[in-house]
Simulated scan of single mutants.
Amino acid sequence: MNRLGLTALFAAVFVLLVLLMWWGYRNRARRQAAVLPAFPAAPETVLAGVREGTAETLLPPSTGVYASTVTDASWQDRVAVGDMGFRADATAHLLPEGLLFDRAGASPVWIPAESVRAARTEAGIAGKVMGRDGLLVVRWAVGGHEFDTGFRADDKDDYDSWVPALRALTPEVRDGE
């Protein structure tokens, strides 16, 4: 087989693998759409206030990368519904109403304050492994399902204030239990 034939064979195998990956991701999104609840949309007033700089925030915004949202079944079980599974540059805003990841080139991810269950740092989440305490991970619930959302801040020192502030939103702390 000559060089041109090998190149064509390699290109065909590459295209086939890309198509299979796309097909698998599309099927995962279909399966999850049938099972997972609708995710909350960011209230327009909150979104407008954050973007205009007039929203009341509990902490200064933190810039970084929204890594992904996964189900509580596994840190590798990425949510593929809509664009929740797409990594994007983002700014995290903690407000009394909830947590907003304002993503560049993707829809914002909104976690209402009453949905927050826990906050911690982790080494990784689907699509992003950063090493020890490299990601801020927020556990939250909606419609009887729990999710973990990962965010890699540009300044890792932000986690020292973000983790306790997010934990203060959990029902146990809010209700005084």
Rank of each mutant, 00 (worst) to 15 (best):
V81Y: 09
S62N: 01
K156D: 14
R152I: 03
F101C: 09
L94M: 11
A90H: 06
W140M: 04
T91Y: 00
T149V: 06
A119H: 09
A165R: 05
L17E: 15
R31N: 02
E122T: 14
D148N: 13
G85A: 06
A34E: 14
A55I: 07
A73R: 13
A48W: 04
N27M: 11
D175E: 15
T71W: 06
T7C: 03
A165K: 02
T45A: 15
W162E: 07
D89T: 09
R120F: 12
A29T: 12
E52S: 15
V65H: 07
M1W: 03
P40Q: 07
V50W: 08
F86G: 08
V70C: 08
V137G: 03
E97G: 06
D72F: 06
D158G: 01
W22G: 10
E56K: 02
A168H: 04
Q32L: 10
K156E: 12
L95T: 15
L47W: 05
A34S: 09
L47T: 12
A90N: 10
V163H: 09
F101G: 08
D175Q: 14
L135E: 13
S161Y: 07
T69N: 04
T170R: 08
G5L: 05
R167S: 04
E52P: 03
T91I: 02
E114T: 05
P164D: 02
F14H: 04
R103S: 09
D155E: 12
P108S: 06
V70S: 04
T71N: 02
A104T: 13
E122L: 12
G134W: 10
G150Y: 06
A123T: 12
A92H: 12
L169G: 02
T7Y: 07
A153Y: 13
K156G: 01
R152K: 15
L9M: 07
V18M: 15
A104E: 13
L135R: 14
A119R: 07
F86T: 10
E177D: 13
W140N: 07
L169A: 02
V173H: 11
M84N: 03
